[in-house]
Every structure is written in structure tokens, then in C-alpha cells.
Write a protein that binds this DNA or RNA. Structure first.
Lengths: 127, 127
DNA sequence: CTAACTGTAACATGACAAGTAGTACAGTTG
DNA sequence: CAACTGTACTACTTGTCATGTTACAGTTAG
């Protein structure tokens, strides 16, 4: 389910965080769902348990999940809300990328077509 | 002229590369222009000459610049073409970011407004 | 030619992040 | 009780980044 790219510069634990957050955003994980345990996921991905735990504790800190010793890690009630608010603030990131593309000579129509595709593709998932 | 952010995760030498590439894209540096020397830039930015050299040699490797011992580093003839082609291939990066924003509930109108702003801002610089 | 500049190369060093390895503790569940 | 769960801690290895330093060779202006 989770896919790790070892060639990437972004640390493994951050890749795990990002993918779990995406699962929550898309609806694969819903509030109350149980995440795979630290040990089972570490075996599945052939990654040291400490790396998984680092990801999980960071998710806890963000309020995305809630971990209980002995029981497991669970998706928080307001996880979706937190993530949506976080992603919303990425609009400036979008501006930076757009500027580069414009300077590179990418046409207005091409970019609009990308935007349309993104909306077409996610139209049913975005409430 | 060049601005280094020491808090950033991206290495200093990559920040230098990116900013010089931007100068070429925007037209501050044109083909044949001479870049500041390794030593002068290292003094200006209070950075070790080796770090500057790492950036310059990478720019050479990409074909953006052409360095000659004793003379200096100069912007290549096809630098602009190489950079435009590179940036053009970032359209998938745009798709990824757009998907996240859409899932986060950002409206179509908001995104289109961003695109318009980007074009308005860069309209005179994009040939 | 000389002096002052240029890029290039090589080495040692320190700092830091990431990941691994191993062990241990405490809570939960069946 | 046994098997699971998350958590904590230390030690170690690795890779990258940046610095400090020295040296060499080519170019240019005086």
C-alpha cells in the first residue's frame, strides 16, 4: 500500500507521513481507522521500526492520529479538517511553481488544461 | 544579488544554482555574460570557495555555463533553451500540487485566479 | 616578464540528519 | 499468561554539506 522511494531526497519517515496523510485526504483512511502497527509496517516495508515510529509520532504531534500504547494508532476525528487547512496554505507554493512555468514559456492554455484535468480527476472526491 | 537562506533544507550550492538559473531565465544574465568569479562571490556571500565551485561545476555539467580556467565562467549560448526545456517538464509537478489543492477543497475560481496572477506578473518577461 | 586574477583539484575536518540495531519498559487484549 | 501494541533510550554507521587550507595551471593587464 505504502510505497517508498529510496532514491528520493525526502527522508523515508516523511514519505510515510505524506502517504498516510494522502490516504486520509482521499478517504482510504477515515476517522477511527486503525493504522498498521509499527512493527507490522516495518516488516512490510523492510524498514527499521524506529523509522516508522518517527513517522507515527509526528502524525500524532500534528493531531492527524492518536496512538495508544497497547492498542495502536488511530486516525483522529478532525484529521481531515487539519489536513485540508494545511494544504490550503499551499497556494503560495502553487504561485512559485506557476511563475517558473510561465517564465519557461508554458502557455496559458496548457496550464488551464492541467487545472481542468485536476478538477476532473478529483471531482468526486472533493466534497 | 544572490540571497542565501541558511534555514532552508536545500543546500547552499543548490540555492546558488537555482538563483543563477532564474537570472538566466528572467534575462538578468544573457548568453556570453560573465558570472562573478568563484572567489569574489565567496567573499560577497561569506561562503567557502569550494561551495561556490560546486555550484559552478554543476552549472557547467548541465550546459548552462562554460567555465575556463584563467578567464571565468560564462553563460552558454543555449542556456536559455536548456532551462526552458527543463522547466517545461515540471508540468507533472504542477499536476501533483493541483491534486492536493483540489482535494483540500480549494475552489476552481481560486486556482484560476492564481494562474491569472502568475501570467499577469510575468507577462512581459515571458517572450 | 610579473603580478594579479581566473578555474580546478585534493585533502582533512567538523557538523548534522537519517537510518539501523538492539534492548527494555509499559499498556492492552484474548 | 502470552502475544500483541506504542514508547523510550543509547550506540553506531552512513552520507551529505560546508569549511579550511594548500596547491597547480591558465589568462590577462601592467
Amino acid at each position: 500500500m505504502i510505497n517508498i522511494n529510496y532514491m528520493s531526497r525526502t527522508p523515508v519517515y516523511e514519505q510515510i507521513i505524506e502517504q498516510i496523510e494522502n490516504f486520509v485526504l482521499v478517504g482510504v483512511y477515515k476517522s477511527g481507522d486503525k493504522l498498521p502497527s509499527v512493527r507490522s509496517l516495518s516488516i512490510e516495508l523492510s524498514i527499521n521500526p524506529n523509522t516508522i515510529q518517527k513517522a507515527y509520532s509526528e502524525l500524532d504531534r500534528k493531531g492527524i492520529t492518536s496512538s495508544v500504547p497497547g492498542r495502536g494508532s488511530f486516525v483522529s476525528d478532525n484529521a481531515l479538517g487539519i489536513l485540508k487547512e494545511n494544504n490550503r496554505s499551499r497556494l503560495d507554493e502553487l504561485m512559485g511553481l506557476l511563475s517558473k512555468l510561465v517564465i519557461a514559456g508554458v502557455s496559458y492554455a496548457e496550464i488551464i488544461s492541467c487545472v481542468d484535468d485536476a478538477f476532473k480527476y478529483c471531482t468526486d472526491k472533493a466534497e
